[in-house]
Design a protein around this nucleic acid. Sequence first.
RNA 1: GCGCACGUGGCGGAAUUGGCAGACGCGCUAGAUUCAGGUUCUAGUGAGUAACAUCAUGCAGGUUCAAGUCCUGCCGUGCGCACCA
Length: 940
Amino acid sequence: MSSRRQYPFDLIEPKWQRAWDAEQTFRAFNPGDSVPDGHPFGLRYPLAGKTASAAALPPKFYILDMFPYPSGAGLHVGHPEGYTATDILARYRRAKGFNVLHPMGWDSFGLPAEQYAVKTGQHPRVTTEANIANFTRQIKSLGFSYDWSRELATTDPEYFRWTQWIFLQVYNSWFNPETNKAEPISTLKFPTDCTTEEQRRAFRDSKRLAYVSEQPVWWCEELGTVLANEEVVDGKSEVGGFPVVRKPMRQWVLRITAFAERLLDDLNTIEWTDSLKEMQRNWIGRSEGAEVDFAIADCRLPIADSKIRVFTTRPDTLFGATYIVLSPEHKLVDQITSTEQRAAVQAYKTEVAKKSDLERTELAKEKSGVFTGAYALNPVNGEKVPIWIADYVLASYGTGAIMAVPAHDLRDFEFAEKFHLPIVEVVQPDKSIGHHPGPTGCFAGEGFATNSTNGEISLNGLPTAEAKAKITTWLASKGLGKKTINYKLRDWLFSRQRYWGEPFPIVWRRDAATGQPYHEALPESALPLLPPALTDYKPTASGEPPLARAKDWVNLPDGAVREVNTMPQWAGSCWYYLRYLDAKNGSAFVSKEAESYWMGSAGSAIGYRPSAISSDSQSAIANRQGATTPGVDLYVGGTEHAVLHLLYARFWHKVLFDLGHVSTAEPFFKLVNQGLILGEDGQKMSKSRGNVVNPDDVLVEFGADAFRLYEMFMGPLQDTKPWNTRGVEGVYRFLGRVWRLFIEEKSETAFEQAQTVATQPDADLLDHLVMNGTIAEVSATPAQLKVLHACIKKVTEDLDHLRFNTAISAMMVFVNEANGWQSRPFAVMRTFLQLLAPFAPHLTEELWSRLHSAFGQRAPSLSYAAWPSYDPALLVESEIEIPVSVNGKHRDVIRVPADADNATIEAAARRAEKAQPFLEGKTVRKVIIVPKKMVNIVVG
RNA sequence: GCGCACGUGGCGGAAUUGGCAGACGCGCUAGAUUCAGGUUCUAGUGAGUAACAUCAUGCAGGUUCAAGUCCUGCCGUGCGCACCA
C-alpha cells in the first residue's frame, strides 16, 4: 500500500478548515447584512464594512444538497459524492463572481432515534444530537464551503414552529378549481343550504387542503404507524421492509391531487433529467378517457342508483364491451346481486378482504371473480351484458368499475377466456405499420374501428383517435358519458403514530348542539407546539399513538383535546430549502427580502415565467446556461427521492406560491441525481456484504483533497460506479506531483525529520518547507501559455456542464506537461492553482499563500480570487495536423498551415507518404475535405 | 408486461455538429534511483504481426466518401412502475 505521505495533508487540511471557520470565509450575505471589514467577500466587491443592498450584491447562485438524516452509522461514501460536486460548483461560482448560497442542515426527525428510545428510554433528542455532532465532524473534515451560520435541524423547535405554521397555511386553504389555485379558506362561498354553524364547519372542513378522513390506509404493525402510498413498496414498508395491511383509520390527509395537473405541467418549466421527470409523470399517472354510464337491466333500484359508471381510456371500443366488472368493494355490489349469486358473491368478497394487498398483486397471475347475477345494458347497442366482480378492478381508481373489452385488453381477455365470456373484435390492427394481434388473439394497440355501428352512429373505418373523439361527443350529447381525466396520484396521508415528529397544531372539540367532534387550528401564537415529555415512547395499550400517554398535555383546561398524531418525516424536508434563506428569522419562516433575492428574480439576471409551457422551453433552458435562475439554481441528491420528497416539496411550494409567500411556482430549477457508488466488488455497499467504505478511513490515509478528487474522478456524477481504493491512490499521487511542482523535495525530508522529533506546533513544522526553485517570475513561453490556456478552457467548460472527471484529467495533462519544464513561470503556476482550487481547496490554499509570500506578495483567500479566463488567440495553431484517409480508412497525417486552402490540403494529402501504397495505380474519383478536420481520398 | 437509461481494452472511463477509437487514471511490463522493499522518475501497454497488412466500440443489417455516434431488428444490464382499465 502507500507508505510515505505524498504531502503533509494531515497538517494542511485542519489548518485551513480552522482558518475558514475563524474567518467565516463562506458566509453568504443577505440583502441588508453588513459585511465585516476584512472579509474576502467584501474585499472582492466594494462592500467591506458596508451594508449590502440587493442591488449592490452580485447575482445569486443557490446550490443545494439534499440534507441527510443523521443516522448512527455516520457518513458513507455516497454522501460526499453529491456534496463534493456541489462544493466544487459553489467554489467555482464564487470565483466567477456570484453570491453563492450553499447551506447544510439535518433532516433529524426519523424512526431510528425513536426506536432506540422505545428500547432504551433515552430521549430521541439525545440520540439525534449525538448523531448530528458526528455528522458535523465528518462533513467539516471534508472541507466543504458551507455557510454554517445557516445550519438548521428539522427537530429544532425554532424550525418546526414554521413547519407547523406552514401546515396551518395548508389547513386554512382550499383549492379553487376556477382559479386553479389554493386560496385562503375565507374566500370559500357556502352553498345556500349551509345555514347552521355546524353545516358551515363541515362544508369548510370538506374543502380544506388538510382534511381528516376515515379511509383504508396502509398500517404497518411492526413500525406501529400508518404509511403513505409512496412509502409502501411491493406490499412492504419502504423503511425496514415490514408487512403492511390495509386498514380503515381516521387520518389527516393533504389534498395533493388538486395540484396533479400543475405538478405535471410545470415539469416542462424545469431542468430535470428526462428519467426523473418520467418517474414523476408515471407517479401522477394522468390518463385521458371517458366515463360511460351503463344502465342496469331489470332494475329494482331507485332511479339515481340504477346505472353503473365506468371509466375507460378506450371509449372507441365501447361496441366490444361484453361484460362489466366492479371492484369487490364497489358500493352497488350488494344491491344488484341476485338471490342465487348472493352466497358466491359474499364468499368472494370475504376472500378478497382477507388477502393482503401483497397477495392480491403477487398472486394475481390467475384472474378470479364471481358473476353477480345482474346485467347492464351497453349504451351503444342495448346488449345485455353480465356484471361481474373481480379483484383485478381496483376500488381506488377511476370509478371502481370497468367495461370489459376482451378483444382489446389483455386483462379482460384473460378473464373472458377463463370464464367463457364473449369476445367481440371492434378494432382492426394497422398491418401497414406492422401491428398484429398478439399470439393470444387479443390486440390492445390502436388501429381502425370495425363492427361499431348502431344505426345512429358508426365508427367503422375510423382510426382510434378519431373514433375516441366521435364516440365521446356522441355519448355526451346523449347524456350517457363525458370526457374525463383520471390520475393515479392519491391524496397524501399526512399523519403518523409516532413520538419523534412535529405535533399537529390542532385541537378537537365537541359541537355543543350535536356532540359531534370537530377540529380547530391553534393560533400562530401557540407555536411552536412542543411534544410532551415522556418516559415511555411506545404506543398506548389501546393502540393510540405515544403522545396519548401524556394526559396533561392532551387534555386542555377548556375541555379540548390535542391531536395526538404527528407529521411524517417529509414535513420538515418539504421546505428546508426556504429556511436556509433566512435561517434565524424569529418572526417569519423567511423574510420577503431574503426570499425575493435568493429565490425570485431579484437576485438573478433573468425573469421567470411561472408556467411557461412552450415548445421552445428547451431553447429557453439553453439560453439560461451559465446565468442564474429563479428558485434553487442547482439541487443535487439521490434518486431515492424521485417521487416522495420531490413531489411533496413541489406541492407545498405551489401552495405557498398561491398564497403569496414565495415568488416561484417551482422550487428547484435544475436537479441532478448523483449515481450510486458500489463496493469494490461491484455490489451495492451493505454491512452484510462487508464491502462498505468508511470515509473516515480514506481520509486518514489520503486526506480530504484526495478523497474529494477521487469521488469526482471515478466517472460521470450521474452514473453508478464501483469504488476502487487503487484509484484513490492515483489521484493522491497526482496531488503529490502538484505539491512537488511548488515545494522543494529536499525540504520535505527536512520537514519529515523535524516532524518525527516534533514538539513544535504544526505551523512551525510547515515552516520547514521551501518553494521549489524552478518557479520564477519569468514570462511564459508560448508553449507554456498554450498548455495553461487549454487547461483553463477545458476545466471551465467542463465545470459548466458538471463534467468533473474530464476536468480533472485536463489538469493531470497540465501537470504532466509542467513536470517537464525547466522553469515554471509564477503567473502560470498561480493560475493553475485557481483551476484546481474548487477540487482540492486545502492543498491549493496552502500553495497559494506560500507561493505569494515566497514572491513577497500578499493575497487574500484563494476562495474569492476571480476565475481565470482563457485567451483563444493563444490556442490557435499556426500549423495543424490533418488525418488523411483513403476510401474511409485512416492512412496518414499531414501537417499544413492552419489557413491552408483546400487545393493546398489536397495536394499535401495526395503526397502523404503512407497513403501512397493505397493510391498507386488507382483513379482518384473524389476528394472530400473538411476544413481543419480531415481529408478522404476516394479511389476506384 | 410497460416506461426510461445504457452496452467501448484486464478495470474506471475519454471521444463538439458523423471526421485519427481508447484522453486521463488504475493495473501490468521493462529500465533508472535504492543495500532492499516502498516511493519517485523514464519508456511501453486494444488484439494481431518480425514488421506491415488486417481485425476491433453487445449481435445482425442499413444510410454515408466516412458510423462508437444516425436508422431498423435482435440480445444483455441497470433503474422505475406494475391488474391504474
